[in-house]
Design a protein around this nucleic acid. Sequence first.
DNA 1: AACGAATTGTGAGAGTTTGTAACAGGGCCT
DNA 2: AGGCCCTGTTACAAACTCTCACAATTCGTT
Lengths: 229, 229
Amino acid sequence: MLAINTSETSPYMQSFRQESRGGRALDDRLQQASERRLEAKEHVFCEGDQRTHVYRVEDGVIAIYKTLFDGRRRIIDFAYPGDYIGLGVLGEHIMSAQATCASKVRCFSASALESLAETDASLALKLYKSVCQDLVAARSLLVTVGQRSAIERVAAFLLALHRRGGEGSKGVVKLAMRRSDIADLLGLTIETVSRTLTKLREMQVIDVEQGGTTVKLRDVPRLADLANE
Amino acid sequence: MLAINTSETSPYMQSFRQESRGGRALDDRLQQASERRLEAKEHVFCEGDQRTHVYRVEDGVIAIYKTLFDGRRRIIDFAYPGDYIGLGVLGEHIMSAQATCASKVRCFSASALESLAETDASLALKLYKSVCQDLVAARSLLVTVGQRSAIERVAAFLLALHRRGGEGSKGVVKLAMRRSDIADLLGLTIETVSRTLTKLREMQVIDVEQGGTTVKLRDVPRLADLANE
DNA sequence: AACGAATTGTGAGAGTTTGTAACAGGGCCT
DNA sequence: AGGCCCTGTTACAAACTCTCACAATTCGTT
C-alpha cells in the first residue's frame, strides 16, 4: 500500500496491480458493497473489533496502525485509493484503521468473500496477489524504517509517495496527512520530521508548499541518493 | 516468519499455520521437490536472480534481506523450518535469501505451483494464507523496528523467538545467527546489540549461555514489559 | 474580518546510539 | 602448542534524536 515498489518498479504483482487500481477486481460478484464516508481521524475499525468486512479505499488515505502499551502509535501502512484493507484476518482485528483525512471506503462482506474464494480459484488468486502487494509494501517500509538517520527515512518516504503518484504528478506530492502520521510511520517524532523537511528544503532538494501539505521534489536523483535505496 | 504473532497469539491464519508446520501443505502435488543443503552464509537466491523456485525451509534459518547502496544490509525476515520463501514474486527476486547457519531447504518449481493454483482454489487459498503469515510477520517486525530504544527492539526480538519456539522451549532460545544478523534485522549495530544483551543480563532478565549462541529468558513478563507490546 | 484551536516550525539541553578502537575468547590450522 | 581468524565484548568521544518550551502559521468558526 505504501507501495515503495509498485507496478513501475517491482516485479511483484504487476498484472493485478493494474487490475485493482481499475477498481473492479473483487467486488463484481459481491452485491452488498455499501459506501462509507469518513472524516479525518475517524476509524474504519479498531483493534479487537470483530472482522466483518473487507474494505476498498475509494478516496483519501487510511492509516493501519497498532497501539503500544505506553500509548505510542505505530503506523504500519497507508492505504490509498484502490487498496484493500482487512484481508488476511481471521477472527478479530489486531490493527486499527483510521482515516488521515476525509476519505471514502467501500465495504464488502468478509464471509461472502471467503466462501466464494473457497471454490473460485481466480478469486483466491486475486486475494493472494492483493496480499502479496501488502507484503511488498510492508517489507519496503521495513527497509525504510530500518534506516538509521532521519533524512534517509524521510527521503525514502517522499520517494515512495512520489512513485505511487505516478509520472503525471511531476514531482508534486500531496501528503494528505499530518506530521504526526508521518512520524508514527517512520518511527520519528513530529519535531524531527519537521526539522528534516526543513533541512531538505535548505538543501534545495524539495519545496514545501501549501502550508506544509504539499511537497515538490526538486531533485529526485539527489533524494534517491539520500534515501540510500 | 519472525512470527511475533503466530498461532498462539494472533487470530491470523491459525488453521494454516498448523497445516504448514506439519510440512506437507503445498508439496504433495508437486513431484520435483529436491533437497538442497546450505552452509552458513550461503545464498538460496540473490536480488536480481530469476525466480524459478519456491522453497520450504526444512532445517536452519534463512535470512531474507535487501542490500542498500552503501553496502548495508537490511534483513526483512528470518525463515524457520516450515516456512516458505519466494512466494509472491513474479519476475526476478528483489530480495536475497541467505542461510544464517547450516540449513536445508526443499525446492519446488514455481511455474508448476502457479499453473496448479490457477485451477485449484484450495491451493490458491493456501498460497494466500501463507503470504498472510508473512504479512503478519513483516508488520510485527515493523512494530518492533519502529520502537525507539535498543532495549525495546532486542526485548521484542527475543520474545518473538521465544513465542516461535513454543512452550516446550522453557525459556531457552537458540539464536542460530550472528550478532550482525540480529543487528541488521533490528536496525542496530552489532555493538549496540551486544551492549543491550549485556544490559538485559545485568538486569537479570536473561542469561546468555553457550558463548552467546543461546539466551535463557529468566523473567518473561519483565521482558514483555520492556518490549512494550 | 477576527478570534481561537490545531498544527507546524524552531531552539536548547539531555539522553541514547553510533563509530572507533582495543581487547578477550573460541575454533581451526599448521 | 602456537598462531591466525572470526566473533563478541567493552570503553569513550562524537553525533544524532528526543524532550520540553515556545513562536509562527493555518484552518474553521463566529
